[in-house]
């Protein structure tokens, strides 16, 4: 009799995780919901305001602008990092001593703390003393990310690409490594071109890891805070004030807890929706 019992007590082992998630996620989220419908002037005294803050945020030009910048940033880095990451993974050796060298080099940016990355690029891109900024200006390219919005954006995107493309590379490489040699041998017998091998063997086999890469990069870039804060502080002007930077300004700079809580909930719902859509779309074809 090898049949398993239909009802097991395995759920008991889940209780510690449920308790932990309740303490570090559900209770703070409940508190944010409570704050979002109230006004406070500190000292734990609150006044009920209903849905006023949600309406204020939804009709605010400042919120729309920050959301637009956030979407533009996320779309840009996804459009660069995914193809670049896959291309680098395809170019990496599959075996031999150089494989270890490549993997270590790829892993290095991921080991650097976010605020250090911001500080590194801040100094690296300074127009008067930074290696990048000084070099560009010596080449007669007018570059000053502290004063030019376009230069600030280019620097911000370059920094993110430098920091996070490695993650896509490592995930794509893991996907490529899992493809059995028999697939390549069959393609060789059929006389398949390198493009056909990529399109019909490598890309479908990487679908699952690329789904994870898109989700991770979307969520992480949509919630990015430390790097742009250290690099530009949201400037020049509000040019690189992404949603998270704006949220912190409202919550901690202005101490407007009600609007900040309403903004947080809207922010959270957008992340939840887009993540669900990405996941559903990218896994549907696989199951079909």
């Amino acid at each position: 009799m090898n049949e398993k019992a239909p009802y097991q007590k395995g759920w008991i082992f889940v209780i510690p995780v449920v308790a932990l998630v309740a303490f570090n996620a559900v209770i703070p989220l409940m508190t944010v919901v409570n704050y979002s419908v109230q006004e406070t002037f500190g000292n734990n005294i609150f006044f009920f305001e209903g849905i006023k803050w949600f309406q204020a945020v939804l009709t605010s030009d400042r919120f729309h602008a920050a959301l637009g910048r956030q979407l533009a940033f996320t779309a840009t880095i996804l459009a660069i990092e995914l193809p670049l990451g896959v291309a680098i993974a395809l170019a990496m050796p599959r075996k031999g001593p150089w494989l270890s060298v490549c993997l270590v080099l790829m892993a290095l940016p991921l080991l650097i703390p976010w605020n250090v990355v911001g500080a590194m690029w801040n100094i690296f891109a300074l127009p008067d003393i930074g290696l990048l900024g000084k070099t560009l200006n010596n080449l007669s390219i007018n570059y000053n990310y502290t004063q030019q919005p376009a230069a600030a954006w280019v620097t911000l995107i370059a920094m993110d690409v430098w920091h996070w493309t490695s993650l896509v590379v490592l995930l794509a490489f893991a996907g490529l490594s899992s493809i059995p040699d028999a697939y390549y041998q069959a393609a060789k017998i059929d006389g398949a071109s390198p493009y056909a091998v990529f399109r019909y063997i490598q890309l479908p086999k990487m679908r699952r890891v690329l789904t994870i890469a898109v989700l991770l990069r979307f969520m992480d870039s949509f919630m990015i805070y430390t790097e742009p804060f250290v690099l530009t502080g949201g400037g020049p002007g509000n040019a690189t004030t992404l949603l998270s930077i704006d949220l912190v300004k409202v919550a901690l700079g202005q101490f407007d807890l009600g609007p900040a809580a309403a903004m947080s909930i809207i922010y959270f719902l957008i992340v939840l929706l887009v993540s669900w859509v990405f996941y559903t779309v990218m896994t549907r074809k696989e199951e079909a």
Binding site: I27, M30, V33, N34, V37, T40, F46, F48
Partner: peptide, 14 residues
């Protein structure tokens, strides 16, 4: 739980 600033409306929602 005063720091959580509960209201009956949010309690009803949850």
């Amino acid at each position: 739980l005063t720091w959580m600033a509960w209201t009956w409306q949010t309690a009803a929602f949850f």
